[in-house]
Lab assay of single mutants.
Amino acid sequence: MPVRRGHVAPQNTFLDTIIRKFEGQSRKFIIANARVENCAVIYCNDGFCELCGYSRAEVMQRPCTCDFLHGPRTQRRAAAQIAQALLGAEERKVEIAFYRKDGSCFLCLVDVVPVKNEDGAVIMFILNFEVVMEKDMVGSPAHDTNHRGPPTSWLAPGRAKTFRLKLPALLALTARESSVRSGGAGGAGAPGAVVVDVDLTPAAPSSESLALDEVTAMDNHVAGLGPAEERRALVGPGSPPRSAPGQLPSPRAHSLNPDASGSSCSLARTRSRESCASVRRASSADDIEAMRAGVLPPPPRHASTGAMHPLRSGLLNSTSDSDLVRYRTISKIPQITLNFVDLKGDPFLASPTSDREIIAPKIKERTHNVTEKVTQVLSLGADVLPEYKLQAPRIHRWTILHYSPFKAVWDWLILLLVIYTAVFTPYSAAFLLKETEEGPPATECGYACQPLAVVDLIVDIMFIVDILINFRTTYVNANEEVVSHPGRIAVHYFKGWFLIDMVAAIPFDLLI
C-alpha cells in the first residue's frame, strides 16, 4: 500500500533555474538572501570558489559584500557603492579590487542584480563577478574607477581610450546646418538635424578633445543650467548677453562664444560640459537660429522629431539603469545623424518603425519583477520565466494532490484497515475457520451469522477504491517536481505499489 509523501509542494524551481543557467555559462556568482541580516550568502558556485580561493563552506553565510576579499588596494568608495546597491532595488555595476585567499590582487567587475517577489519586494541578490585585470595590471588604489561605466561593446579594446569628441564640431553647429540641408533625401539625416562627426583615429590627448566618459557625465550638469543662461549661451556672438549692473557675465554663455574659444586653444572642462549641455537642449539648428531671432517656433511634425517616441515608452518600462547606459552608448555611435529632440514631445505622434532597438522591449506582467540581467542570462521568455513566489501546480481535472487534506485522511483510514487485516486475518484463519468446520452448517442466516465476513468484505472494497484513487494521485519525481499527468501517474504506480495493492485487495476469504 503506498505511503508516498512529498510535502515540499507547491515547489518553486526558480532558484534552481537560475543556478542551472548560470552554471551553463561558466559564470562566477553568488546568491544572497536579502531578508536576513547583512544579506548572507546562501549559494556560491564553483567558479566563484576558484576565483577567490575560498571553499564553499568558508563563503556560505558570510555577508555578500565580500568584505573578506578586501585588501589594501580595495577602494572604500567601491565598497560603499556595493553596500548601497544592496540597500536599493536597481541593478548596478561596480569595479573593485579584490584579494584572493593567497593574497593576489585582481580588479573585478561586480554586477549586483536584485530579484523581487510578486509584491515588488527584493528577496534575493545575485552578484556576478568578472575579472577585468590581474594584480600586475591593477593601478594605484588612489585612482577611482567606479565613477565610470563599463566599456562599450562596439569599441575595440585597444581603442576604448582613444575615443574623442571634438569640441569644434559642437561649436560649428550653425555652420554645418547648410551642408545638412543640402544633403536632402540623399543624406542619412532628416531636415533640421545636426550631424556630429566623431574622430576615432588614435591621437595624443589634446586640450581640444573630450573623453567619452566626460560626455556621459554632461547629463548630470544640465539641471544646474538655468533657462535664461541656456538661451544666452545659444544666442551666440551676435547678441551678447546682458548683465545687470554690478553683475558679471555668465561664464556659461561665454563658453560657447566662437570668438572667445578661437582665441585660446584650450577650454576648461567645466565650460566644455556646460556648452555641450546647452546645445543638447535645442532640438535642431533651426531652433538655434530661432533663439537668435527671439522667436522659438513649435517643433515640426516630421520623422526626426518622432524618433524618440518609442524611446520614451522603453525608458518607462525599463527595469534597470543598464538600459540608460545602453541608450547613452548607442546615442554616441560615430558617423550617424543625431536628432536633438526633447523627450517631452507630442504624445499624438505616431511611433516610426526603427531597425535598431535601443531599449529592451516591454516586459510582460509575469516578468515585471525580474531584472534585465536575470532575463538576459536565463534566456527565457515571458511565458517560461515565473515570478519568485509559491505557485500552485497546474493539475488535470479529477486529480488528487498527494499533500491535500483528503489524501491525508484517506491514508490514515487505509492504515487502520491494514492494521485490522494484519490482526484479524490470522485470527480468523486459526480459530474461526476451525469452529466453522466443526459446527453445523448455517446457510440460512447468511452474513448475519458471520459479522467478521462483512467487515472483511468492506475492507476489500476499500482497498479496491484505494487502488483507483492512487491512479489519480500526484507524486514527486526525482527532481522534486509534482507530477499531475494521468499517464505518468499510471506508469509510476504500475512500477511501484500496484502489484502489492492488488494482492492485498483480493478477497481470499470469499474465494475459499
Results as ranks from 00 to 15, higher is better:
124 M>S: 06
14 F>E: 12
218 M>Y: 13
86 L>K: 01
254 H>W: 15
281 R>Q: 04
361 P>W: 01
15 L>A: 07
32 A>R: 01
202 P>R: 09
24 G>H: 10
58 E>A: 03
382 A>C: 12
382 A>Y: 04
355 D>L: 10
161 K>G: 06
72 P>A: 09
88 G>Q: 08
150 P>T: 13
379 S>R: 05
64 C>Y: 05
52 C>T: 14
32 A>D: 01
193 A>T: 05
47 G>L: 08
176 R>V: 03
75 Q>V: 05
255 S>H: 09
178 S>R: 15
251 P>I: 05
53 G>R: 01
175 A>R: 15
237 P>K: 14
60 M>I: 15
132 V>I: 14
210 L>A: 06
252 R>E: 15
151 P>T: 08
121 A>E: 09
38 N>R: 14
352 P>G: 07
363 I>R: 14
47 G>P: 01
68 F>G: 01
287 D>K: 13
49 C>E: 05
273 R>K: 13
193 A>S: 07
122 V>D: 06
57 A>E: 08
291 M>Q: 11
143 H>D: 08
29 F>V: 02
33 N>S: 10
308 M>G: 11
263 S>E: 13
314 G>A: 12
192 G>A: 12
377 V>W: 04
308 M>Q: 11
22 F>K: 05
326 R>C: 05
154 W>Y: 07
294 G>M: 04
161 K>L: 03
212 L>I: 14
283 S>F: 07
6 G>A: 11
330 I>A: 11
278 S>P: 14
150 P>S: 08
207 S>E: 08
227 P>V: 09
39 C>F: 07
202 P>E: 10
142 A>F: 15
329 T>D: 11
279 V>I: 14
239 S>L: 08
187 G>L: 06
274 E>R: 07
277 A>V: 12
373 K>Q: 10
177 E>D: 08
315 L>H: 14
275 S>Y: 08
147 H>S: 15
175 A>L: 01
220 N>R: 07
139 G>R: 14
318 S>P: 07
249 P>Y: 06
367 T>I: 14
80 A>S: 13
312 R>H: 07
186 G>K: 04
373 K>T: 13
60 M>K: 01
61 Q>H: 09
185 A>Y: 09
194 V>P: 01
329 T>E: 07
283 S>T: 14
125 F>I: 05
379 S>I: 03
239 S>E: 10
10 P>R: 11
93 K>N: 13
205 P>C: 06
250 S>F: 15
138 V>Q: 14
199 D>P: 15
48 F>D: 01
94 V>W: 01
222 V>C: 09
351 S>Y: 04
270 T>L: 05
386 P>M: 02
382 A>K: 12
163 F>N: 14
175 A>E: 15
16 D>Q: 14
269 R>P: 14
202 P>M: 01
199 D>R: 01
348 F>E: 07
363 I>L: 07
380 L>E: 04
118 E>N: 07
77 R>C: 06
326 R>W: 05
346 D>F: 14
281 R>P: 06
2 P>Q: 06
52 C>S: 11
319 T>A: 14
56 R>M: 03
220 N>I: 07
153 S>T: 15
50 E>L: 12
159 R>F: 13
224 G>M: 05
306 G>I: 12
64 C>F: 02
281 R>C: 10
275 S>V: 07
103 G>M: 06
221 H>R: 12
